[in-house]
Simulated assay, not measured.
Amino acid sequence: MKPFQKRSRLEIIRDILKVIRDSNSAISPTKLLRFSNLSYQMFEEYLGELEGKGLVELKPYKGKRKIYSLTEKGRMFLEKYEDFVSFLRDFGL
Rank of each mutant, 00 (worst) to 15 (best):
Gly48Val: 03
Asp83Trp: 08
Ser86Trp: 04
Ser69Ile: 01
Asn24Ile: 00
Met76Lys: 15
Gly63Lys: 09
Ser23Tyr: 07
Asp22Gly: 08
Arg9His: 11
Ser23Phe: 07
Phe87Lys: 06
Asn24Glu: 10
Asp83Ser: 12
Met76Pro: 00
Gly52His: 11
Tyr46Arg: 05
Lys73Tyr: 03
Phe35Glu: 00
Leu70Tyr: 01
Glu72Val: 10
Gly74Glu: 03
Lys62Ala: 14
Ala26Asn: 07
Met42Val: 04
Ser28Asp: 02
Ser28Leu: 08
Phe77Tyr: 15
Leu47Ala: 10
Asn37Ala: 13
Val85Leu: 11
Met76Ile: 07
Phe87Tyr: 12
Asp22Ala: 12
Glu45Met: 10
Phe43Cys: 00
Lys64Gly: 15
Leu10Gly: 00
Asp15Gln: 14
Phe35Asp: 02
Asn37Trp: 08
Asp15Gly: 06
Ile13Gly: 06
Arg65Tyr: 04
Phe43Asn: 04
Leu47Ile: 14
Asp83His: 09
Lys18Tyr: 03
Arg9Ile: 00
Ser36Leu: 09
Lys73Asn: 07
Ile67Gly: 05
Leu70Gly: 05
Arg9Pro: 04
Leu17Lys: 11
Glu45Ala: 13
Glu57Tyr: 13
Tyr40Thr: 03
Ser25His: 07
Leu17Trp: 12
Lys53Met: 12
Leu32Ser: 02
Ser23Ala: 13
Lys53Glu: 05
Glu11Val: 03
Ile16Leu: 15
Val56Pro: 07
Gly74Asn: 09
Arg14Ile: 00
Ile27Pro: 09
Phe77Met: 09
Glu57Cys: 11
Met42Phe: 07
Glu79Phe: 08
Leu33Val: 01
Arg7Gln: 06
Met76His: 03
Leu58Thr: 00
